[in-house]
């Protein structure tokens, strides 16, 4: 079981908002697949899966604000 976290985004950006999920629970994901789209005030970006497996849990939902380092998903 691995957790995917919001990675460091650089200078002065400490949080981002969930735009939408590219995968549904139960779907297989490969390492590097774009898992979730996030947005800051002026940038949108995708967070990739860091491992191969099945998306077990979505720990955040569309519209949620997430801090850098917080877990987004569990991959089994």
């Amino acid at each position: 079981m691995a957790k995917v976290v919001l990675p460091a985004l650089g200078e002065g950006i400490e949080k981002a908002t969930v735009s939408y999920w590219h995968f549904e629970i139960g779907q297989e994901v490969k390492e590097g697949d774009e898992l979730i789209e996030m947005a800051t005030d002026k940038a949108v970006f995708n967070v990739p899966s860091t491992v191969m497996g099945v998306l077990k849990e979505k720990l955040v939902q569309d519209g949620d604000e997430v801090k850098v380092g917080e877990a987004l998903a569990t991959i089994e």
């Binding site: 985004l9 650089g10 200078e11 002065g12 950006i13 002026k42 940038a43 970006f45």
Partner: peptide, 10 residues
């Protein structure tokens, strides 16, 4: 270029 969104926007 450092993978730094904040820096890039600045």
């Amino acid at each position: 270029l450092g993978r730094d969104l904040g820096w890039f926007l600045k």
